[in-house]
Design a protein around this nucleic acid. Structure first.
Length: 269
DNA sequence: ATGGTAGCACGGCTA
């Protein structure tokens, strides 16, 4: 089964590029981020004409996630547990019924967190975007812990907005104080990994320049000024089922691309 | 310190 995460940066603008990629790559399960659409305005025909089941969790203007699957989906849930007041559409889950195993697929769009607002003691300002990011990551950690405790095989994949290590950025120095890379952000990501999850890409390659995002600005793609922020994290069961993992970098050089590219995992489920 | 680009939706925020 080919499982993919792709931050498409706006479903209404991405139609042609997305359909070209869908027809060539033919993912079995696709989780999308930044659909930037309400559910009713999502052009479902892109997927339904190709035989996909589509589940969306949208909001107006920003954010929004979706799951498309050729395999049956059940028990779809929307929203990350832990804060009933969180109105941002950034998380959904569905169970994919594979021929051999069921897999809980958790699609996520982790908050960017910029600008970083700190008080005089250096603590994140309550109500600020950086505090929201860290709180969201703690909720994600708790969700992973709950799935592990239930022994539910799962994969958490999406746009994490986290650069895990220096080798995951072309210019790490430039990101030192950024919410995507500053130490507390990386520590929060590590604490999720340290539950026993596997970074699928790093389990299969140590290749340098394994980037998934290049800014539209300042010719970042032409200069290969990229960062690795889209990740596939596997629970121990899922890590055993991982066959291969890669990044479809060429998509970034095609016409009217997203600023992210797909990251995929071949899973023996 | 700013600007550089893109998306949604049509003004300004988000990234």
């Amino acid at each position: 089964m080919k499982l993919v995460s792709f931050n498409i940066n706006g479903i209404k603008a991405r139609g042609p590029a997305l359909t070209r990629w869908l027809d060539s790559f033919q993912p079995d399960v696709l989780v999308m981020q930044e659909i930037k659409s309400v559910d009713d305005a999502f052009p479902r025909e892109i997927f339904e004409e190709r035989g996909y089941t589509l589940e969306t969790h949208g909001q107006k203007g920003f954010n929004g996630v979706a799951i498309a699957s050729l395999l049956p989906l059940r028990d779809v849930s929307r929203g990350l547990p832990g804060d009933d007041d969180d109105a941002q559409a950034r998380y959904m889950e569905a169970t994919v019924e594979g021929p051999q195993h069921n897999l809980r697929v958790c699609g996520l769009y982790l908050p960017n967190g910029n600008p970083v607002e700190l008080d005089e003691a250096g603590a994140p300002v309550a109500g600020g975007k950086y505090a929201y990011k860290l709180a969201w990551m703690e909720r994600l950690r708790a969700r992973a812990e709950a799935l592990l405790a239930a022994e539910t095989p799962f994969v958490m994949l999406g746009d994490y907005n986290i650069i895990p290590q220096a080798e995951d950025a072309a210019r790490p120095k430039a990101w030192e104080n950024d919410a995507l890379y500053r130490l507390p952000s990386r520590e929060a990501f590590r604490s999720i990994l340290n539950l026993g999850l596997t970074d699928a890409l790093r389990a299969r390659t140590q290749a340098p320049e394994s980037y998934t995002f290049w800014d539209y600005q300042a010719g970042a793609w032409d200069r290969n000024d990229g960062i690795r922020i889209d990740h596939i994290l596997l629970c121990p069961y899922a890590a055993d089922w991982l066959v291969e993992c890669g990044i479809d970098r060429a998509v970034r050089g095609e016409e009217k691309p997203s600023d992210h590219v797909p990251i995929w995992a071949e899973m023996g489920v």
